[in-house]
């Protein structure tokens, strides 16, 4: 099977049995935004705006490079944005503008 076929046939999260390093017993207390992101995922699922299975599928659709490089909750929030665009709940431009506003709001507060 050639490489381009294999990229589609094996999702980037499907790693059971693949070679991997020794286990490092890592953990960290969630950042406040990470916990909010987790709560957002639950609330989106409660309302079936984005259900859990859609969230999984959306993370997979980010592709192997992003799945490998982004942190756990970075993958989640990026996925929520894309799915909300797909469902026409948000528009890409709308989110971009709001992100600029949020960033500006916080930079004003700080020196």
């Amino acid at each position: 099977m050639n490489h381009s076929e294999e990229l589609l046939r094996r999702l980037p999260n499907d790693i059971g049995g693949l070679p991997a390093e020794a286990i490092r017993r890592t953990d960290h207390p969630l950042e406040p935004w990470e916990k909010r992101c987790h709560a957002l995922a639950d609330v989106l699922d409660f309302h079936k705006i984005i259900n859990t299975e859609e969230k999984r599928r959306g993370v997979e659709a980010l592709g192997a490079e992003m799945v490998g490089a982004l942190t756990y909750y970075e993958r989640w929030i990026a996925t929520f944005a894309v799915i909300l665009f797909q469902k026409r709940i948000l528009a890409p431009d709308e989110l971009a503008k709001r992100m600029d506003e949020v960033a500006a709001r916080h930079s004003k507060v700080l020196p």
Partner: peptide, 12 residues
């Protein structure tokens, strides 16, 4: 078989 886009039956 090899579903495109999403599956929950791991390859192994």
């Amino acid at each position: 078989r090899f579903p495109v886009g999403h599956y929950r039956v791991p390859r192994y």
